[in-house]
């Protein structure tokens, strides 16, 4: 089963939930999909090791063959190519690597080369593998790395995907193809506002989802009421506890510092299994 941990708002505790959930499930794989700022590895002592580079194909133009017809520039949805008078300009940072220009060129003047976007690294513990992607500084486009790091989740095993914050392409990519999405929020007006945005996105993706409230006790009860009104399962509330904050600041997972918490995370996992199983049964009945 694949479980994504997401949130609209940043800093609600996605990584906290992801790391502790992965450590509470036997033999799980943790995939950190926040390639702009991966941070799951901060909770593990072993250093991360490089697995491979990730890149996208970008065009190389043979200017002798090219007759400046401009069809490639016209085709490019990202305006990465411009043909002006007798000059061809290529703006590498705008290229999404779709390969369309190469197909469309009537002169066969375009070949491809690899442009490295970042790397994938591996770490974790003896019985919990961790993979993360790391986007090179200055690169604007992390989705290809997110796709590549997601692919490393072993099939037929439990995998937790720690998503980047927000509701744009990187977060949508990280949440796609999951069996379940956990939306982590905090019980504040900001938390609720961004939770609503995230709920809209997950509903459109069509994946079953539930909410975990982190730092319970701060703010108000509007998130609880929202979930109740919308029939969204509230999977757990992690209290705003100074002991948890202290462990976090030292890079110690909650379930290691306060082992009683393992029950909470196992509970979340069991609830998710039930919801996904019921959903599968429903789908079969409809078919």
């Amino acid at each position: 089963m694949k479980i994504s941990v997401a949130s609209g708002k940043g800093g609600t505790g996605k990584t906290t939930i992801s790391v502790n959930l992965a450590l509470s499930i036997d033999n799980a794989t943790l995939i950190d999909c926040d390639v702009e700022e991966p941070n799951c590895h901060l909770f593990f002592k072993e250093p991360m090791e490089k697995v491979k580079n990730i890149g996208i194909p970008i065009p190389v133009f043979d200017l002798d063959k090219c007759d400046r017809c401009g069809k490639c520039a016209e085709f490019c949805q990202y305006n990465a190519i411009a043909v002006i008078k007798d000059k061809l300009l290529f703006f590498e940072e705008l290229c999404h690597g779709c390969g369309g220009c190469m197909i469309i060129c009537p002169q066969d003047a375009i070949t491809e080369t690899e442009h490295t976007l970042g790397v994938i690294e591996k770490g974790g513990t003896h019985d919990m593998e961790l993979y993360h992607g790391l986007l090179n500084i200055g690169e604007p486009f992390g989705v290809p790395i997110i796709k590549a790091v997601k692919d490393l989740a072993p099939p037929n095993k439990e995998a937790i995907f720690d998503s980047p914050p927000g509701t744009a392409c990187p977060a949508v990519e990280a949440m796609s193809d999951s069996d379940f999405v956990i939306l982590v929020t905090e019980p504040t007006p900001f938390g609720l506002h961004d939770l609503k945005l995230a709920v809209d996105v997950v509903k459109r993706i069509g994946t079953p989802f539930g909410v975990v409230v982190n730092r319970g006790g701060i703010g108000d009860d509007r998130v609880d009421r929202f979930c109740e009104n919308e029939n969204i399962p509230l999977l757990a509330t992690i209290p705003n506890d100074l002991k948890i904050a202290r462990l976090y600041s030292k890079g110690i997972p909650i379930v290691e510092g306060i082992p009683e918490y393992k029950q909470v995370f196992v509970g979340i996992y069991e609830d998710i299994k039930k919801i996904v199983k019921n959903k599968d049964t429903e789908t079969k009945e409809v078919q």
Binding site: C76, Q77, Y78, N79, I84, L94
Partner: peptide
């Protein structure tokens, strides 16, 4: 027409006026 381009509006507008 480049006013609402998702990216690369400048080069596209330059091509148009050229």
């Amino acid at each position: 027409e480049s006013a609402s381009a998702s990216g690369g509006a400048g080069p596209q507008a330059a091509q148009a006026i050229s």
